[in-house]
C-alpha cells in the first residue's frame, strides 16, 4: 500500500488545538494529499484529554491511527504526551510543549502528576523536541496567544512540506491583525 503519514495532536480540552488542526489540514489539502482526520467532540472537551488523528498520503482509508504507527506526535501538554506515547513509532518524532496542566484527580490530591515527564520521554523517545511555547510566543512573537502556532512551527519543520505553504495557510486562518505575530510564532517554533 502507498505510504501514509500518521500524525497525532494531543492536549487538553479548551487548550485550542482546533486552530492548529485547521492549519495542518489546510496545508495538507493545499499540497494535494488525500487527507483524513478524526477527533471526538462533546463532553471530553470540558477539560478532558483530547486527541486528533491526522493521516495523509496518496490514498487514506481509516481516519484512525493505530498504536505504534504515528510518525509524529505534537503534544500540547506533558502528561498527554506520555498518555499517547504508545501511538508513536519506534523511530517517530515527538514534539512536546513544556507545560504541565494538572488534571482534576491531581488537584484533589488523589493522584500524582508525573513531574518527571520530560525525563521519561527522553528515555523512551529517540527523536524528542521540547518546546517552551509560552516563552517563545511571548519573546519572539510578542503575543502569548500564539503558542499553538509556535508548536505548529516545530511540527512543520519535521514534515516534508515547503514553509511557504505553511505561511500561506497560517495567514489565511488567523485574524488579519495577528498575521505578523503568528508568522513570527511559526518561525520561532520552526527554529526551536
Amino acid at each position: 500500500m502507498a505510504k501514509v503519514t500518521n500524525v497525532l495532536l494531543v492536549g487538553v480540552g479548551g487548550q485550542g488545538t482546533i486552530l492548529a488542526t485547521r492549519v495542518l489540514a489546510g496545508v495538507l489539502v493545499e499540497e494535494g494529499f488525500d487527507v483524513k482526520m478524526s477527533e471526538v467532540h462533546g463532553m471530553s472537551q470540558r477539560g478532558g484529554s483530547v486527541v486528533t488523528f491526522v493521516r495523509y498520503g496518496d490514498k487514506v482509508y481509516s481516519p484512525l491511527v493505530e498504536r505504534g504507527t504515528a510518525d509524529l506526535i505534537l503534544a500540547f501538554e506533558k502528561l498527554e504526551a506520555l498518555r499517547y506515547l504508545p501511538y508513536l513509532k519506534p523511530e517517530g518524532t515527538l514534539v512536546v510543549n513544556d507545560l504541565a496542566l494538572l488534571p482534576a484527580p491531581v488537584l484533589l490530591g488523589k493522584a500524582e502528576y508525573p513531574y518527571n515527564a520530560l525525563d521519561i520521554l527522553k528515555q523512551k523517545v529517540k527523536d524528542l523536541v521540547v518546546v517552551d511555547a509560552a516563552k517563545l510566543a511571548e519573546e519572539k512573537a510578542g503575543n502569548v496567544r500564539t503558542q499553538n502556532i509556535v508548536l505548529l512551527g516545530a511540527l512543520a519543520k519535521r514534515m516534508d512540506i515547503p514553509p511557504g505553504t505553511w505561511e500561506k495557510v497560517v495567514s489565511e486562518n488567523v485574524p488579519p491583525k495577528t498575521v505578523e505575530a503568528n508568522l513570527k510564532a511559526f518561525w520561532a517554533g520552526w527554529e526551536a
Binding site: 480540552g13 472537551q45 477539560g47 478532558g48 484529554s49 498504536r67 504508545p86 488534571p103 484527580p105
Partner: peptide, 20 residues
C-alpha cells in the same frame, strides 16, 4: 501486537472532563 512504548506501568493520572 503493536505499541512499542507501553506506559501502563507509569500509572498516569486520568484527565476526566470537569465543570469549567
Amino acid at each position: 501486537e503493536s505499541a512499542p512504548n507501553q506506559v501502563a506501568d507509569l500509572n498516569l493520572p486520568t484527565r476526566p472532563p470537569v465543570l469549567c
